[in-house]
Amino acid sequence: MLRTINLKKLYTTEEVETTALNNVNLEVHEGEFVAIMGPSGCGKSTLLNILGLLDNPSGGEYHFLNHEVSKHTERQRANLRKSNIGFVFQSFNLIDELTVFENVELPLLYLGYSGSDRKQRVEEVLEQMEIAHRRNHFPQQLSGGQQQRVAVARAIIAKPKLILADEPTGNLDSAHGDEVMKMLTELNEDGTTIIMVTHAQMYAEYAHRIVYLFDGHIVSENILKTAAGVAAS
């Protein structure tokens, strides 16, 4: 599905140059569930942004679905991104001015789906995420767990091959956190590849594999023997 070869990312301000990623080599296969862990500032989010085609690396190669994309323009990346990748964020990142329904619908609008197709698909996903009864509410009227379910619904609405989750449980209590992890696991079981950044070991253990990042390097990879992991392998 995706592979990085000696991936590098440098941030330069006027005086300081910071290396966020240094020679990262990572391969993720279709259907995998990978967790990325590491302390604050280790480069987790940077890696996720590059994998999610939101940013370009400073060096190295990135192969995504058989494309070498490290030199792609924003427009090219956007085209690959909008039909192949769904995002889930720690802070949900819903648009406050739109209702639940409209937030979930948005990716389909940008993909040019017709009105009836959109309505049908959104209803399906809202049912699947058990949030259909809240379809006309605005994000601020929902609890954190509900908001994250809406975000997940939005991430999967276009049936992406890959979901990138950046600390999806970070703003939730444990009950809601468990709920979100269960949803991600189910999606993975249905064949969606998932890469998740997390701080919490207990949520990382839902994955098949945990990649540890430290100061921009991958320091270790653990294959887990969870039920899900066994099933996948």
Binding site: L54, R81, F87, N93, L106, Y110
Partner: peptide
Amino acid sequence: KEVGIRKTIGANR
């Protein structure tokens, strides 16, 4: 934030 979200999920400039 809204711009970021919209771009992430597929809006172009």
